[in-house]
């Protein structure tokens, strides 16, 4: 398998070059050690709150407020479009707030879609969000709750056809809804316990 070997060679080369550059940085900063800041720049945490995070959060806030105005006006399609834009905001890579905000947006988006009868679309939004989640959070728990609601809506649609087969299927879907609600409860309980115990 040559491709992984080339990839690893590139990584090692990058590490060596990086190591030499860091060394030169230390070497050349001899005089500037007395300047406050040279050590800090090297050791500044990557996860400090920075401008790019604030810009992304600000955009999310604006879109949510805008959607709220549309909802108050009864314009659900416009509210849906607006909330969907939150999912395209470029958050800084790895920022935990990104996942939280996007999961919250997905929950809202799914509810809007269900309100407009687009139940399948709502389920896709929910499933995609749960698949992308990297940790269990209150936002993931909330999305499971919304998943349960979407499944309930699906069950109602099936029952409304009046077909016996659909009625059977509706029963199965309701069971899935209960599983989703239970999952939400379990996540919330576990997280609350962790937070109360101070992690």
């Amino acid at each position: 398998m040559t491709r992984p070997t080339r990839q690893m060679s590139r990584l090692i080369l990058a590490a060596l070059v990086g190591g030499v550059l860091v060394a030169l940085g230390f070497a050349c900063s001899g005089e500037s050690d007395r300047r406050e800041g040279s050590v800090t720049r090297i050791t500044a945490p990557e996860d400090a709150i920075d401008e790019s995070l604030m810009i992304a959060l600000s955009q999310a806030k604006n879109f949510h407020h805008k959607a709220r105005v549309y909802m108050s006006d009864g314009q659900l399609p416009l509210a849906t479009t607006t909330v969907r834009q939150i999912l395209a905001i470029p958050f800084p890579a790895g920022a935990p707030e990104a996942e939280d905000v996007q999961l919250d947006a997905r929950a809202m988006l799914a509810k809007l879609l269900v309100a407009q009868g687009q139940v399948d679309a709502a389920m896709s939004i929910v499933d995609e969000g749960l698949a992308a989640a990297t940790r269990e959070s209150f936002f993931v728990a909330n999305l499971y709750t919304v998943k349960g609601e979407v499944l309930q809506a699906q069950a109602e649609l099936l029952v409304s056809t009046g077909q016996p087969a659909d009625g059977d299927r509706a029963r199965e879907v309701r069971k899935q809804a209960i599983v989703a609600f239970d999952k939400s409860i379990a996540i919330n309980e576990a997280l609350q316990k962790q937070i109360l115990e101070g992690k």
Binding site: L53, P92, E97, D104, M108, L112, R135, Q192, I195
Partner: peptide
């Protein structure tokens, strides 16, 4: 930058779309 769980806490189920919004 950190998870918002401790800040937000458990998210209560919203009884309506309006409350959710």
């Amino acid at each position: 930058s950190r998870p918002a769980d401790a800040l937000i806490g458990v998210i209560a189920r919203a009884p309506s779309l309006d409350v959710a919004g």
